[in-house]
Amino acid sequence: MTPLYIQAFGGVDDRGLHSVAGTRPWDAGQAGPDEVRRDQVLDKQYPAFGKLSLPDRLAFAASSIALTPGGTAPLAACGMCLASEYGSFSTDLRYQESIAAGFPSPAIFSSTLPSSAISDVAIYFGIKGPNRVLCGPDAIVDIFACASRLIAHEKCTSVLVIALSAMEAQDRQSAIARRPVAMSNSAWAFLLSGIGNDTLRISIAAEPGDASAAAKADDVSLYSLARLFMQGAEGEIPLTIPQYRGKIILTKET
């Protein structure tokens, strides 16, 4: 895998909002990432923030945290790789409810695509490079590999890698969920480039495991990755996702 260097990251999960500056817990009364507010991730007003569907809003929130500090490479040449664990599961059902109510919602329909989660980010930040959207619980390994290849083949100079696990609470808690799912949502965005400046190099050592293994609910891998990066520390994090055995490795480049 061509070396990838982490330039910035952003994350939202039930622990709080994560950035290179550390973790900010949710405000009192805020139930968690599902209730993230615009002012917590973007300084400027953005009226369209409220209309984003839940998955799109979480991906947007994590990306905004990663990209807003600025000082990053021009984003027009940036690519994007999204790992969407549940795809558009919840928005599909919300759209169907709007049909059943007699007034199908065009706005919800335009979010019934796993790729809508990166469209909003691309539109807002002007990211025009190639992008990949992979679905399923194993996709987080693939997105780092995709990012590495995009940079290795000079398709773009940096890649925003987003891992999204988003299902609306009403769908999770009902009997609709037919495999174990995490009890809260999360979104992580890592801005990666092929050039390291005194920063941490990420690589993934993963082998295909049993393709038929049951999915597990786990976002330990990326939270641990973010924590190591925040600490500026080297380390290894085991991958706990189906279809793969292996680890994520963070190495300091000096």
Partner: peptide
């Protein structure tokens, strides 16, 4: 400045009907 696009217009169309 409201960030309203063509999809929002279609939502407003639904609002008018509803």
């Amino acid at each position: 400045n409201l960030g309203i696009d063509s999809i929002d217009t279609l939502e407003l169309l639904v609002l008018l009907e509803k």
